[in-house]
Every structure is written in structure tokens, then in C-alpha cells.
Design a protein around this nucleic acid. Structure first.
Lengths: 131, 131, 131, 131
DNA sequence: GTGGTCTAGACCACC
DNA sequence: GTGGTCTAGACCACG
């Protein structure tokens, strides 16, 4: 199974599920029409309470990422891929803006910040290469 | 008064106070030995619950940024400036790493991320110039 | 086949089947003595779970709209036409009352509601004319 | 207290709460900035589980009707009145369309339907007058 | 005191 | 089997 939950991450479990499903749809890992694991099934796999999974799935329905198939389960909605890609981009951009604003408010110079970013980006993306 | 609190920012109020005092000390806006406003005084100025200010001041004492002056109040501690600069740098770096990790986990390519950062950095730092 | 099922309509599938059979009998589209499609046949035509069709047929038997013909299948019962017309009228009246009560509880004025109804009725019945 | 819940109404309790708060805001019974009863308080008044109230309040936050005031409670959001009026109108219109479509599909003539509506509307709104 | 999250377990309608 | 709703009770951060 492609999902990984960290209960002590600070970010709520239901939110981690929402994000990972969203990203999986954005990446085409889950295709429109495909059924997602049932609430009980996923709750077993993640050793998480079914209510928590249900809450995540409910939110994904509100966001039109999933649609109910009565008595059968939940399926990825038509057009969800585009929505998810948009949402992912918006999320990342928002985080980026938050970070940059905080850095600027902290009195960091643009040049200094640039060099930090360069350093850390090399580290983070090299870690990926090694892995 | 140089402090600005945004109660609907998502980040806890006590945390905003802690950060702004820390950054003020780092920038030399508050110098070692200088007295900070009393809990009641600051809570009035920021229209914030006194408990909240007290909590922030408690944390700043724990971090050796402030020290009690018996019968007088709280003053910026000796050596606080260096400590605050270090803390500020650490904070920013940590946020940067968090952001980069999240971006990478989201399947964002290094090149794409770079271009986003460039765009947003121009925006954020131009906004500063105009202001 | 005259029946149309919409699985994503919100109203349960078995209920849609029951209603459409009832209305067909009321309109004389299905005449007393006439055989209805078998459970398996109808479930294939509607691409619906056989259990669902069986449940609908069971309810229609309870309501004396269908009757079993030993070794042959289910037929429209004698006197079903009148019963179905009565049931259809009762159903519509009930929905109407529910709607009006809700509208009133929502603080809608009688005059305002009247104008809305006029507008929407024109739309709905014109759509029929065009079709 | 202005809220009335019917647990055996078929419509979910959390939904009844959402609707009644929405309508109260639409009617100006609750004004922007005003605090709504706390989760625990309302759950006591309605003899309903706090989680159920919390779920309703969460949805109202998603819909920008309520906004959190940290450590204090939930307040009616700015601009909520207009949003709620719009939502109320949309809800009623949707129900109206559903009803009219069902009536038409049932083979009801426009004139016959009109007379039914007139009769029932007189009943429903007279009931109000008497009350 | 406030809301937010999570667990546990029950009952329902639907397919 | 499926999701949806509700109750009960715990723990957390925040003001």
C-alpha cells in the first residue's frame, strides 16, 4: 500500500490521508472511476480508527475528489485529476509564500536567503538521488 | 510600539509574541538590560489576554532571552542578542527544510520548484521595496 | 424498456424502480395481468444488482401492485391501476406539503414563494414542451 | 433558545443544526461578530452529543459562516449574512425544482398541479396565521 | 473555559 | 459487504 501515516507528525491523521489521496490522484496513481480502499479496510491497514478514515473520505467527497457508489464504496470522481493537480500546486505555493514572508519579516536579506535555499535544495534533492 | 499581533494568523498569539521579541533582540531593537513592558501593560497594548503575554514571557525566560529584575520587571538578558540571532537562523532554516521536503514529497521537480521560488521571491521582496 | 435509473440521484435505486413501476401502472403503460420482466432480466437491463430489483419487486407485492403467478413470474395485480393512481397522488401531495412547510419555516413570504413557483413551473413544463 | 431539533426527522441532526444556524444568520437573528453557543453548551441544550454539534460547527466554518476565535469560541463571520441568504434561496429553489420535476415525471398536468399547489399553500400559510 | 482530534463501539440503509 | 450517523469519553493546545 502506498500510504504512510505518521500519527505524531503534528498534522492531523485525517489531513495526512486527505493529502496523500489528493496527491495520488494528481499523479495518476489513482485514476477516475477506480475504487479507493473501504473505510474499514484502510483503517485496518493504517491501524487507525475507522472514524478518522471516514472523516478524511468525507472531506474528499466535499472537495469532489471522491464520489459515493451506493452500497459499493467510494470511487475517484471524474475530473478529479485536474482538481487535485490544481490543489497540490496551490498548497505548495501557499507554503512557499508563508515561508518567504516569514523569512523577510525576520530581517533576512534576499541574497542571504537565496544562498540558504540553494544549499538546502541541494541537500534535499541529493538525499532523493542517493535513496 | 513595534509589535503587531494577528489573532487570526493561525500561529498562536503567545508564539507571535515570543518570535517578535526574539527578532527585536536579534536586530538590536531591544538591547541587553533594557526593560520590556509589563505583562499587564503589553496585554493592554495588544488587546490580548494577560495569561497569553505571561506565557510568552515565561517561555522567553526559559530561553534566557529575558531575566527577572527583582521588584522591577523583566529585562533583556546579557548575551541575548547572540542567542536570538542564532535562534532566528535556526528557525528559518528549519522552516526551509520542512518546506523543501514537503515540496519534494509532493512530486515537484527541482527545476520547477526553482522557478516557483524565483517568482515568489521577486514578489515578496518587491512588495517590501514598494512599502 | 421504459425504465430509467439514475444511481447517483440520491434516491435509492430500489425506490426508483418501485416508483416507476407504480407510475407505469397508474398510466396504463402496464396493464393488469401483464407480466413484468424477471428479476434477473431487469437487473441485466438496468445494470443493477439483482438483490436491488428483488427488493423492489418484494415491496410491490406487499403493496398489491404485483402478484406472483406460480411457475411463471410476477404479473400486475387486478385493481392495481386504481391503487397506483391513488398512491401517486398521495405521494405528490406529501412532497408538496413537505416542500411548502420547509419554505415557510425558512421565512419565505407567501407572495415571494408564489412567484418562484410560477417561474420554475414555466421552466419545467416548457422543457417538456421542447423535448 | 431558538433552535429545535427533531432526532427522528430522517434528516441528520448535524444537518438540522447547520440549517438552523444558517437561517438564523440569514434572518439577522445572529449578527456577524456575535458568538454562537459553545459546543458543550449547545450540546447540553439540545441533549445531543458534543461531537454532533462540533461536526455541524465545523461544516459552518468550511462554509465561512462561522470563524474561530482562538480560546474563546466561534463567531459569526463577516459577510456571512449575505452568504446565508444566498444559500437559503438556493436550497429552497433546489427543493422546488426537485418537486416540480417529480410531479411532471409522474404525469401530472400543469393545470392540475397548479390547483393542488394553491390548495396546499392556503392550508400551510393559514396554519401560520392561526398560530 | 474554548475548539480540535482521536478512539471505541453501536445502529442504520443500501447493494 | 459498503458508507453514514450518533454516542461516549479521552487528551491536547490555546486564552
Amino acid at each position: 500500500m502506498w500510504m504512510r501515516i505518521d500519527p505524531s507528525d503534528g498534522v492531523p491523521i485525517y489531513d495526512q490521508i486527505v493529502r496523500q489521496v489528493t496527491f495520488a490522484v494528481a499523479d495518476g496513481l489513482l485514476r477516475p472511476g477506480e475504487l479507493v480502499p473501504s473505510v474499514r479496510e484502510l483503517s485496518r491497514q493504517l491501524t487507525v480508527n475507522p472514524n478518522t478514515v471516514a472523516r478524511a473520505y468525507r472531506q474528499l467527497q466535499d472537495e469532489q475528489v471522491l464520489r459515493p457508489v451506493r452500497g459499493t464504496g467510494l470511487a475517484v470522481a471524474q475530473g478529479a485529476a485536474a482538481r487535485c493537480r490544481k490543489k497540490r500546486a496551490a498548497l505548495i505555493r501557499q507554503r512557499l509564500q508563508q515561508f518567504l514572508n516569514e523569512a523577510r519579516r525576520s530581517g533576512l536579506e534576499k541574497s542571504e536567503l537565496s544562498s540558504w535555499i540553494e544549499t538546502e535544495m541541494a541537500r534535499v534533492y541529493n538525499a532523493e538521488a542517493k535513496k
